[in-house]
Structures are given as C-alpha cells and as structure tokens.
Amino acid sequence: MTLDALAAVVSGFAPQILRSAVIIVLGVVFARGLGRLLGSSISGRLGAHSGSLLERGLIYSAYLLILILVLHQFGFQLGALLGAAGVLGVAIGFASQTSFSNLISGLFLVAEQPFIIGDILEVDGVSGEVTEIGALSVKLRIFDNSVVRIPNEFLLKNRFTNFTHFPLRRVDLQIGVAYKEDLERVRKALEETVREERLCLREPAPLFVHKGFGSSSIDLQISVWTEKENYLTTRNAMYARIKERFDRDGIEIPFPHVSLYAGEATKPFPVKGSPRP
C-alpha cells in the first residue's frame, strides 16, 4: 500500500478516529479519576490493600469498556465479537479454573478481612507476617526472612490462625516443680515474678492452673496477658525471671534423668537356645 492509499484510508476513517481518540482520552481520565476516588474512599474504611485492589479492578473493567466502544466506532459487530469472546472465554475458563477460583477467593478474603497486612498468621504449619494480599495469593514473610506464597483458595478452604487480630495475647508458661515443694509458696513466688515484669499486664489478671501430677514433677501453667507486639519478649523475660526466682528461693525444677552405664553391666545378654520338646 502506498502512502497515498494509506492517507485515503485514514481520511476515510477520520471521524471514527477522532471519536475513538475522544473516547480513549476521556475514558482513561474518567476511569482513573473514579478508580482513585473510590479506592481512597474504600481504603479509609476497609484498609489500603482493599482500596488498591478495588481501584485496579475498576480501572481494568473501564479499559475493557473503552476497547469495546472503540471497536464499535470502527464497525465491529459487538454481538459476533462477544459471541467469539464467549467461546474463547469458555476455553480460557477451562484452562484457568484455578486462577479464577483464587481470584474469587481473594474477593471473599477482602470482603471478610480475617487478616490485614502486618498480621502474624499460621497456615498449614507455617507462621509468618502477611506482607501482601494479592488477587491470587497472600504472601507471608516467615521468620527466617523467606517468603511463602499461599493461594487465596487455600486460605478460604482451610483453617488458619491469626495471632495478632486482637490487641492482647495470653502467654502460657509451662512449669514443673518438685513434689516436695509447697505449692502455695510456689504460687506466691510466681505471682511476685509476674508483678515484677513490666510487660505483664496486671489486668486481665494472670491465671494459675495446676495441670496435674507428671512423671517427675507437679505440672503448673501460669498464663499472663501482654500486648500482642510484646508476646515473644514477655515469654522470654518471664522464663528467665522464673528461673532466677526459683534458683533464689531454692524451688526445684525437676527433670527426668537418664543414666548410661558402660562396662560390665552393658555386656550383651547371653541368649541360649533350647531344643524343641
């Protein structure tokens, strides 16, 4: 095709090109503006991530509409096009069932909001901080600083634990003391230890549970409340304080002993066969 012929074709489509340009420019500006407006409005209510996800969804839908309108300007039969798109959609749908399922699950997760970015989750035996809630998956930064990607569908179908949903957490400390110890004295020592640790909240009050008579110790549980961000520090500090206090008060923490003997006693047992009667 010569340049003259090309110019003739273009001039023949001049009104359509002009209208399409107007649709594209106005459509893109309008879609972006509306997306941003709704996104920031949703962000305020449902969180930054939900806002950005909805903003992107809205903008992509608007782009699709703009494309359809532009094609319509050039005389494309939308019915036939949509029919073809339907057939194509079925084919693509079969091929991308998993992705689609993850996408829909992602929408449910955004609506339900069982966790937000920054929460600590345990999913399928893996614990980590939520760093990204995507359209298809959630990314967890686990504590060795690697990333685990969890498909949204998995999160929707399976049980997971959010450790940081509420502002408070209870730290359960398991302790064993020797059978000879006076339990009232032990309890008093533990109460004082809790009072000395600033990270332990005085209210809700700590809980003492006598768990039972173990094989080598009387088993106790002391549960203290702390702010969620102090969970690990409180746990470490309390175990250190309890050990310090028990050592000072002479309260024995028993542990099972295993004795290994070497020498005569460990000679192989003689095995003798006897004739069958």
Partner: peptide
C-alpha cells in the same frame, strides 16, 4: 504496673 481497660 501496666493494665488493660476494656475487653479482650
């Protein structure tokens, strides 16, 4: 000491 005022 530190405490909490409110629910869990």
């Amino acid at each position: 000491g530190r405490g909490w005022f409110g629910s869990r």
